[in-house]
């Protein structure tokens, strides 16, 4: 089964990272990623750039509203994720606990759904499988 480890950081964590030498941050994350690789459980992952480079599309109103920058009132920002192939929820938790993060950071751990979670005969599910194939994101 696959689990996604989603990194969330609040202001404290962002500030702490700014105080830390970039090389050190990279080295610690690199060592963690290497552990995941060497254990054979890493199947994917990406880091995200600064939130102010991104934007938000809000669906509260009648028309979707695009606003620049981070999420306004949201206190925690997503800044990266891993996808691990493990044998149990507990194994995912064990790996998550080893992540080199500090105060102000959280890892949200979610199971990645597979075809078995959805009715196979649904027309839209089948179409989605096709899109994923074309996009190579399956």
């Amino acid at each position: 089964m696959k689990y996604m480890l989603i990194m969330r950081a609040d202001e404290r964590a962002v500030e702490a990272y700014q105080d830390m030498p970039f090389d050190e941050v990279i080295a610690r994350m690199g060592a963690y990623n290497e552990q995941l690789m060497k254990a054979g459980v890493m199947v994917g992952g990406e880091g995200l750039s600064e939130a102010d480079e991104g934007f938000v599309v809000d669906f509260d109103g009648e028309e979707p509203l695009v606003t620049d920058g981070p999420y306004g009132e949201v206190k925690e920002l997503f800044n990266g994720f891993w996808i691990l192939e493990v044998s149990s929820k507990e194994e995912a938790a064990e790996w998550a606990k080893r992540c080199p993060l500090g105060p102000g950071s959280k890892l949200e751990v979610r199971r990645v759904t597979g075809p078995e979670d959805f009715p196979a005969d649904n027309e839209w599910i089948q179409k989605e499988e096709g899109w994923r194939e074309e996009l190579g994101t399956k």
Binding site: A39, S87, S88, E90, E91, W95
Partner: peptide, 10 residues
């Protein structure tokens, strides 16, 4: 016990 199994596996 499941936690032991998870650590053991790793």
């Amino acid at each position: 016990r499941r936690a032991v199994a998870a650590v053991w596996r790793i």
